[in-house]
Nucleic acid binder design. Structure first.
Lengths: 372, 372
DNA sequence: CTGAAAGCGCTTACAG
DNA sequence: CTGAAAGCGCTTACAG
């Protein structure tokens, strides 16, 4: 038996009869031409025998890097973010990076700067700086405003599904009305620095839905819109309005709701109770579409015979509904993957170009020509 | 201007005209009685002025702790795991811990021990040990077998939704049939060490459903079961079988499926096409119940008039369906919170008792007396 | 081809 | 009440 704790590179060196430097070189994979193959072999076997794993804290300190990226999402409860994480983690792992996820603004306001409240079962040995949030090399921020990056002034960041960034130094909302059109383009500024973006082609997707409906013969369109302050929903509303305006005789009505079935049912109901009832309901989200289904059924309206309904996102729910939902598939996992790729590029000094991932119109059974 | 990089405690010390030790004491909150209030104040203001944030890698190295916990889940795509994370992260944050999530067995087989494949956009400076997986103080493993902990021999761990652990040294599946009944009880062993558990009262939940159905008058029950090798599904099947057997005249048929609407629709269809068609379908999962709805509708069967259907979990989908689904609510966020609490206890040397969180029967509109 | 040494930024005895 | 020093476990010039 040697030391009690977990073995260090020093232990491996001793076991192999070499110096710590040699161990580091060999295990770090930069030994070719500098260490003899025989020595390398013996180092490896010593490491294996001891079950050696390098201490990441020590490496991080030495290297000034943590090989960890923070993924910020508004919530993990929405089915959309699981795949985003999965895509990001997949490419991160390929490059030896880990992904930490945090929800914002929720738990980012956690322990930083506060005394630890309540009766702690484990008392932190440190006071105001307990948050581990800072131990990261980069951040991926999904579906939020640039403000979210305020606390990461120095940290390389990529914005996902957050729209084209506003000009340097401007608050993003202030620039809202005048912002460049529909599709997410161009790196912009968060407090003056450039932040690469990866977005969905939300506008094209919404236009696809509008054209599909118009092609079927619909003219009176109702928009059941999510009352959520995110770029993607603003873009959806804008694109739908533009697309309906382009249809001769096209008329758009709108009703807002929260993203849950009950709220959506009520909002859709308001539209359906109008004298000039729409023949098609375009919903901002698949779950909202489920609410629209309920509103329709409550009024004895058949889908798609009396009323066409569309969703957005194509989550599992879309095919669980009956009839199955016509919707736009958003490649969420791809968003995470491309975002991570962009961030890794940024980390190695490149300037990733902004990317837009097209959505795909998925026509199922919830859309048909309007009743005569 | 002083040094270029981010300020260190040494910089703060210099700025405040004190030593590094004093800075550490003050900022670490352990100065009372050891540093004069005036000095403490000046240290704090110097830190603020410089925008000082301690380097977590250095602290981790010094302390031998990372204040980071790994949450392992089978997938982030299922709607169940978002809340688990949220609950765990909430209590972690209160104690200055962060939560990293990893899916297993998927991305845990990542870069460890492999050369980095493909054309890396960022070449890791280190070879075989690139994985950050080890930089953790503890692990929370949800919905998986004890084997998942094999690579964390020394790391404190808590198993969530994974059932009562098997006796020390035994593979968990080997012990399956003879394992102690239905509800998740008792710390067990993973390769000889004790692992605390937090589970749902799945058996009680399933029994609640069976009794609800029996009370309505149902005798022929069909089980649309998830073909997924997880404790929770084995427990659901076992509990339902026992509960139906306890009903005079109770008869149980079963059909297996994957957890998706199409597979579930087919499995439910097989049950509905039998000569002795069940009058109620008990589904292992809300999404499976959605598939059962489709099978029923395809056969012109009204829910709940001709057929009662129940789900399990109570995810968003349950109220998006029509009729709204009778199901069992599982407190997923609470599972994460309690699991993290147990892990924190473990980390501070306590032995958390095993916990079982009761499910709640939610009666909605998908269940009614069987047709005459 | 190999080793001795410095140093990343902290925290914590220890001495005064 | 305050400071000088050691050391956590790595990696990387630098010397041989």
């Amino acid at each position: 038996m040697s030391a009690p704790g977990r073995p260090t590179s020093k232990d491996v060196a001793q076991e192999a009869g070499v110096s710590q430097s040699t161990v580091s070189l060999v295990l770090g994979g930069k030994w070719t031409g500098r260490v003899s193959p025989a020595t390398a072999r013996s180092v490896r076997s010593a490491a294996e025998r001891l079950g050696y794993r390098p201490n990441p804290a020590a490496r991080n300190l030495r290297l000034g890097t943590t090989r960890t990226v923070l993924l910020m999402v508004p919530t993990l409860t929405a089915p959309f973010f699981g795949p985003v994480y999965t895509g990001a983690a997949r490419v991160a792992a390929r490059h030896g990076f880990g992904v930490v996820v945090a929800t914002w603004p929720d738990d980012m306001n956690g322990p930083v700067g506060d005394a630890c409240p309540g009766p702690p079962s484990y008392t932190p040995p440190d006071g105001p700086f307990a948050s581990p949030d800072e131990a990261i090399d980069g951040v991926l921020a999904s579906s939020m405003a640039v403000e979210a990056l305020a606390r990461f002034r120095e940290t390389p960041a990529v914005m996902l599904d957050s729209g084209p960034n506003t000009p340097a130094g401007l608050a993003p909302h202030a620039a809202g009305p005048g912002a460049p059109g529909s599709s997410g383009h161009g790196p912009g500024g968060a407090g003056g620095r450039l932040v690469p973006t990866v977005d969905f082609g939300v506008a094209e997707g919404m236009r696809g839905i509008a054209e599909h409906l118009a092609g079927l013969g619909h003219r009176r369109i109702g928009h059941v819109a999510a009352a959520v302050d995110q770029w993607t929903f603003r873009a959806r509303a804008r694109a739908l309005a533009a697309a309906v305006a382009a249809v001769p005789g096209g008329v758009l009505s709108r009703s807002m709701c929260a993203i849950d079935a009950t709220s959506a049912k009520n909002a859709a109901g308001r539209l359906l109770d109008r004298a000039d009832r729409p023949t098609a309901l375009v919903c901002d989200d698949d779950l909202i579409a489920a609410g629209a289904y309920k509103a329709a059924r409550a009024r004895g309206l058949d889908i798609p015979g009396d009323l066409s309904v569309t969703g957005f996102d194509d989550v599992l729910l879309a095919t669980a509904l009956e009839p199955e939902l016509t919707t736009v598939r958003l490649p969420a996992e791809e968003l995470g993957a491309q975002g991570m790729t962009a961030l890794l590029d940024l980390l190695s000094g490149r300037r990733p170009a902004p990317r837009v991932l097209p959505g795909e119109l998925i026509i199922r059974d919830s859309t048909a020509p309007p009743p005569p």
